[in-house]
Nucleic acid binder design. Structure first.
Length: 293
DNA sequence: CTACAGGCTGGTG
DNA sequence: CACCAGCCTGTA
């Protein structure tokens, strides 16, 4: 186990911000967050003023510190926002613990192909089922509270995200029943692109490319348009200047930024601000419930 | 029942 | 170029 203090971070908010679909609370104990990413698995709980992870310090530093973007000070971004911009201010206040995760590129390609013209509930279900059907079964370590009230490490099994080759060999037939709908052919196509040594090289090239070239490379792929390409850039390549415009963000822009979002002002990190606004928007319903309206 | 999901493709004007 | 019908299907 490993304890660490991380500012500006909240699991609930990150999990509900629509950037990852494999982070959820344990059914048996809703204090425990389960996180599966890039073939690894970890569980974590929030304590007084820090977080407790089920892994050791070494694994945390090698895998999860990067994943949760802990080295980045989000306070800087928040302070840089226009004090006159009340919408963005409110959004950041509401989603104070939102961060942009460093997620696996291949997983983001598949996940955001699934996300198109789709809703979060169904995306989550499809990703879960995809891993269950085609991913490796693995053993990981989780957290369980013992009778004396202290946390202890316990073994868990989980489904890893399937490799490109697993999806390719499954074919359209193997992808049916996952609730993918017409997106199945896009998933199969990207699996073929990413599979083998040639596919690995393509992924490496993508990682080395700058935002603009990466976006172009992504747009060339079957089923990937402007929005999905931007999501992959932001969540899979950590080009935080990428600013995905979906139906929600478009509505936000129409209502709150009729003259356009000030991208020039926030050049290089507008994607982070987009995430606060997106989170604020999609959780509007639960926010209204809290207010009693 | 209809409308709509963190859109994209392919065809048309 | 701009425009847009059609697409799978679960959920509100």
């Amino acid at each position: 186990m490993y304890r660490i203090q991380i500012k500006d971070m909240d699991f609930e908010q990150i999990a509900r911000s629509g950037q990852c679909f494999r982070m959820k609370v344990r059914e048996e104990d809703n204090r425990v967050w389960t996180i599966a990413a890039a073939g690894e698995y970890v569980e974590a709980v929030k304590e007084e003023d820090c977080f407790l992870f089920s892994c050791g310090e070494k694994e945390f530093e090698e895998t999860w510190a990067g994943y949760f973007d802990v080295q980045t000070d989000y306070g800087c971004y928040k302070r840089g926002v226009d004090s006159e911009d009340s919408y963005l201010r409110e959004a950041m206040e509401w989603g104070w613990g939102v961060r942009i995760l460093h997620q696996d590129l291949w997983e983001m390609l598949v996940t955001f192909l699934i996300s198109q013209n789709n809703n979060i509930t169904r995306i989550t279900g499809s990703v879960k089922e995809l891993c269950k059907q085609l991913g490796d079964k693995r053993k990981g370590t989780g957290l369980t509270m013992s009778s004396d009230g202290s946390w202890e490490e316990t073994e868990r099994s989980y489904d890893a995200f399937p490799k490109p080759e697993s999806i390719s060999s499954a074919g359209l037939k193997g992808l049916s029943g996952l609730g993918l709908g017409y997106r199945d052919k896009y998933i199969l196509s990207i699996a073929k692109t990413c599979g083998g040594s040639e596919g690995e090289q393509w992924l490496l090239d993508l990682k080395e490319a700058d935002y603009k070239s990466a976006h172009t490379m992504l747009m060339e792929q079957y089923g990937i348009g402007r929005k999905v390409a931007d999501c992959v850039c932001l969540f899979g390549l950590h080009h935080v200047g990428a600013f995905p415009v979906d139906t929600h963000v478009r509505q936000i822009l129409e209502v709150h930024y009729p003259k356009g979002f000030p991208l020039e002002r926030y050049q290089g990190y507008a994607g982070i601000l987009q995430q606060y606004m997106f989170y604020y928007k999609i959780n509007q319903i639960s926010r209204n419930k809290l207010r009693g309206t």
